[in-house]
């Protein structure tokens, strides 16, 4: 950190002719670098928290319900216990697993970023690329979970897939909340890529 604060101001004022005095320009450069770095940390924490919350909300979404089912028309309806849980749908399994992967990666990258704060080494590029892959993974799993959730919510009359959310209200609410929170996490990863790119660009245009 100390290394960067001694390096950056001189580079900053070297190329950019500023109407301000040299000292204030240097201070602005340092402030800029600090702000970018702290917003990166904030976004990374947001990504970790969002994926963690998504995992927890999806994990406790199991719902058991007793529904009356008519087996023989003239007899009274039988009470049948039905269960909805995320393990029943492969799309939700994908969603769950990719959120766990993103959570683990988020924690690891948080540690690596904190360890390499202010240094310019190869880690920056590696983390940018991994963020990219995580954003792609999370986006695809969000898409899959949202598509299946929409099927459960609306059903599809063309292929006679009935809606299930009128029976499993709590399960559907959990899945919907989980997808929204996970979407926030994937947007955080996406913004992290944009932020890292912008800081790469800023370093160049000094």
């Amino acid at each position: 950190m100390a290394e960067s604060s001694t390096l950056k101001p001189t580079n900053y004022e070297g190329a950019t002719p500023s109407p301000m005095g040299n000292g204030s320009a240097a201070a602005a450069g340092v402030a800029n670098a600090n702000r970018l770095s702290s917003s990166e940390l904030l976004l990374r924490m947001l990504a970790v928290v969002a994926t963690l919350v998504a995992i927890i909300v999806a994990g406790i979404s199991k719902q058991e319900k007793t529904v009356p089912m008519v087996v023989i028309p003239n007899l009274p309806a039988l009470n049948v216990d039905v269960v909805a849980k995320w393990q029943y749908s492969s799309a939700f399994v994908f969603f769950f697993v990719s959120n766990i992967i993103a959570l683990v990666y988020g924690i690891v990258s948080l540690i690596v970023t904190l360890g390499n704060r202010g240094k310019s080494n190869g880690w920056g590029l590696a983390i940018l690329l991994m963020d990219l892959v995580m954003a792609a993974l999370l986006f695809s799993s969000n898409g899959a979970a949202a598509a299946i959730g929409l099927l459960g919510y609306k059903g599809n009359s063309h292929v006679r897939w009935n809606k299930v959310c009128n029976v499993f209200g709590k399960f559907c609410a959990h899945v919907a909340g989980s997808v929204v929170v996970s979407l926030m996490g994937s947007l955080a990863f996406l913004l992290l890529v944009a932020l890292a790119t912008i800081s790469l660009y800023r370093i160049k245009s000094r």
Binding site: L132, A135, S140, N142, G143, A144, A147
Partner: peptide, 18 residues
């Protein structure tokens, strides 16, 4: 990339059910 991966995921999820 975000738009396209979400599309791949959603279409893949529905197609797998199909």
């Amino acid at each position: 990339l975000g738009i396209l991966t979400a599309a791949t995921g959603s279409a893949g999820g529905v197609a797998y059910i199909g």
